Simulated assay, not measured.
Amino acid sequence: MTTNLKLGTRGSPLALAQANMVAGALAVHGTTCEIVVITTTGDRVQDRPLAEIGGKALWTKELDAALIDRRIDFAVHSMKDVETDLNDGVALAAMMPRADVRDRLIGTATLGALRHGAKVGTSSPRRAAQLLARRPDLVIEMLRGNVATRLARIAAGDFDATLLAAAGLDRLGIDAGHALEIDDWLPAPAQGAVGIAIRKGDAAVGDAVARIDDADTHAAVLLERHFLACLDADCHSPVAALARVADGSVSFSGEIIRNDGTERQHGATHAPLAGARDAVALLAAELLARASPELRAQFGE
């Protein structure tokens, strides 16, 4: 049995809550962990959108380096923040059971209740595009920082509203906002999922974390990430997706949106789990085929 593993994580309150959740789950199986906090570029740079300065890798590259250098044994990530193409030396080994996948609207009960020209803060291209698709009059401005920082900016009146992941709020014990239902508002791919990355080929650590892997969550996250890969999406590409796995089959919904919200292409598919990757790839191709040249230009080279 592998014990006393070094668990790498970012140092935000949410990241630490997730790391402690993983450590607690492993402890049930006799594996103890030392939590090692790694400061990432994404934590240090707060005045610009991630898409402008390197994308999702800014949350993960320092953790990947610590993993490969053996300063940590595994890393815990919010899976929606993990780039689609992993570092060559890194593998995704386990997923915790998925939490609430929805976004919560903070500062107002409904989008319709916002005044004309209201200022909404977000750094997410997906959320910005979804907002503009429904309310083109809204003014979208960048809002970054941890959950407490963003809630404080709303409370101070700097913005009329923002959107936060329900899973993160729940993990921090914060009861705030109004959930947007999935049928109307798809989440980011892998939202609500916490994953574990290990060094590729590290069988001992892989075996240890496999004991806490949730198979349905793992399958859903991999399918949503496959959708991103099939679209050739990057950090600028507004994409929403959700795979629901149950009883050996998958219901998958996906959406691509122009950055200015003027076009949305949405589709869904249902398939046995064994054939779901092909079904997801076909859906991605269908959405791109239906899209205007302007929307297609947001994907690929």
Rank of each mutant, 00 (worst) to 15 (best):
Asp183Pro: 01
Leu163Tyr: 13
Ala188Cys: 12
Ala190Gln: 04
Phe159Pro: 00
Leu169Asn: 06
Ala179Cys: 11
Arg171Met: 13
Asp184Gly: 14
Asp175Glu: 15
Ala197Asn: 04
Leu164Ala: 04
Leu172His: 04
Ala176Cys: 10
Gln191Glu: 14
Ala190His: 02
Ala176Gly: 04
Gly157Pro: 07
Gln191Pro: 03
Ile182Ala: 08
Gly173Lys: 10
Val194Asn: 11
Leu180Ile: 06
Ala166Cys: 10
Gly173Leu: 08
Arg171Trp: 08
Pro189Ile: 04
Pro187Arg: 11
Ile196Ala: 05
Ala161Leu: 11
Ile196Asn: 03
Ala161Pro: 02
Asp183Gln: 14
Asp175Val: 15
Asp175Ile: 13
Asp183Phe: 05
Phe159Glu: 00
Ala179Asp: 03
Ala161Lys: 04
Asp160His: 15
Pro189Lys: 06
Asp158Arg: 15
Leu180Asp: 02
Ala165Thr: 15
Leu163Cys: 06
Gly192Pro: 00
Lys200Glu: 07
Ala166Ser: 13
Ala179Arg: 08
Ala161Cys: 10
Phe159Ser: 02
Trp185Arg: 05
Asp175Ser: 15
Ala190Asp: 14
Gln191Gly: 06
Leu169Thr: 01
Gly192Ser: 04
Ala155Lys: 11
Ala193Gly: 09
Ala167Ser: 14
Gly192Val: 01
Gly192Lys: 00
Gly195His: 00
Asp170Asn: 14
Ile154His: 07
Glu181Met: 12
Thr162Glu: 07
Ala197Glu: 05
Asp175Phe: 10
Leu163Lys: 08
Ala193Cys: 09
Ala193Arg: 08
Ala167Gly: 08
Ala166Trp: 00
Gly168Leu: 07
Asp160Lys: 07
Arg199Tyr: 12
Asp183Tyr: 10
Gly173Arg: 08
